[in-house]
């Protein structure tokens, strides 16, 4: 499988990456390199092998349902918002979103 330039541009758009034509072409070649690697792997007969969802064959550890993050005085919020580009009335402000 090989990727076309429009496909690369679409992937970039989905990931909100800005690429010019030269960069897209470089990315296309690199991605196609990765695809040939995947093709080599897909040539291996894996019938009868159960797909894994994680590299390690262990299960999720769970936490008890309890509130451990307390932020009563909003001091922590002020701390978080001090690194945000803009905040007001406790809200993070972002460029207007219109649906």
């Amino acid at each position: 499988m090989t990727l076309t330039l429009p496909e690369v541009k679409r992937i970039a758009r989905l990931a909100r990456l800005e690429v010019n034509d030269a960069e897209a072409e470089t990315a296309r070649q690199q991605l196609n390199g990765i695809f040939s690697l995947i093709e080599a792997m897909q040539a291996v007969d894996t019938s009868g092998v159960e797909p894994m969802a994680h590299a390690q064959d262990v299960f999720q550890r769970l936490r008890e349902d309890a509130v451990t993050h307390t932020d009563a005085d909003a001091r922590q919020r002020a701390l978080f918002q001090s690194v945000a580009p803009e905040a007001e009335a406790g809200l993070y402000l972002v460029p207007r979103v219109i649906e």
Binding site: R63, A66, V67, T70, D71, A72, Q81, G90, L91
Partner: peptide
């Protein structure tokens, strides 16, 4: 009482971003 992946409260109506 807490969120699915964190220990923040799920109570409704708190001041913005305090949970």
């Amino acid at each position: 009482v807490s969120k699915i992946f964190s220990g923040a409260s799920t109570a409704f109506g708190a001041a913005p971003n305090t949970q």
